[in-house]
Design a protein around this nucleic acid. Sequence first.
DNA 1: AATAATTTCAACCGCTGCCAG
DNA 2: CCTGGCAGCGGTTGAAATTAT
Length: 352
Amino acid sequence: MGRAPCCDKANVKKGPWSPEEDATLKSYIEENGTGGNWIALPQKIGLKRCGKSCRLRWLNYLRPNIKHGEFSEEEDNVICSLYISIGSRWSIIAAQLPGRTDNDIKNYWNTRLKKKLLGKQRKEVQARRDHAIQKQQEMMMKKKVMENQGASEMLPDCHNLNQSPYWPDLAVLPPIPYSNQEPRFNDHTSFRKLLINLGGRFSDHNPDHSTLNPDLIVDPQFQTSGTISSVQPPLTIKSSHLEALNSNNISQLPNNNHCNISDQAEGSTFPGEFIEEMLYTIPPRHDGLEFLYGDTRFSTNGELSMDWGEMSSLSYLPPVDHSSCETALHQPTSTMQKVGFEGLRYMGSDAQ
DNA sequence: AATAATTTCAACCGCTGCCAG
DNA sequence: CCTGGCAGCGGTTGAAATTAT
């Protein structure tokens, strides 16, 4: 049983492409196009390659306007924000980054971006931990001074000290199991949570979106946003829209180009100060490491059980243009074939 | 300089969804 | 409606390159 192989495996060359093979494939496609049939193409041009292999070679390497090399911070941020929204749908993410291929982005994510994020997360957690310890020490000092002054009976309890009631807990948290955490980051859900709690973007860099897909609509008022703890734009994505994206139910998405962001209460927004307050007063176990500490708000199958009201209050998503995702998700295969993959994959870039 | 360990990334594999017959 | 063939996609692999010892 099983389906027939797409080509005669015995007579097909595998492994790295030679410059001659590249030249043959490139010159043929540039002159004649793919002819809409990848399977037949290699035989037509005398290449001992599988059609799928030809397609991949063209898409990921030979095609014009492919961008190789380092990813910019803006690209990092786009990847991160889309990863939160739609997960590992690399082809859709690639559509937002002209010149980048889905394979490239996938590799970049798996080999580098994930590690960068972990490093960043560790730094932030450590910083908050240090801050908490410092606060606690300050409190102890105050208390000692007041005791020495014989005024200890006047001392309000820590809850009335204008301090977070959580601070005393912070210093006694168990150490984060760094050495063992790597395998637990393997699932997409964990990384999405991490990203959400990092503010939905990798870098604090002020993005210059001029290098990105022109379809990417950026609300100018958002462009001045800096770090997570700085003043934030109105939050965040409407839960129904993300659910729609996650379930491919595009009809539920808004028609406007912006990711309109609001909480479950329509139109309500959170001031940046409130976000900052939340980020720095909640216990660190809620800082994207729930899966390390076994937060019960996340179900055992790794699915996010935190509702979007809660989540949105912790997150900031850069205003990535989900309408382009919508376009991509809407494209039926036949249309893709007629228009050509360029039209789908690199909307806004120079279609060849 | 030699070897081992780690990282990167091109390419492959197999599944899914769409379409034509 | 069913089936076969195809393109497209995401996960995985493994060779090459790089870095550490």
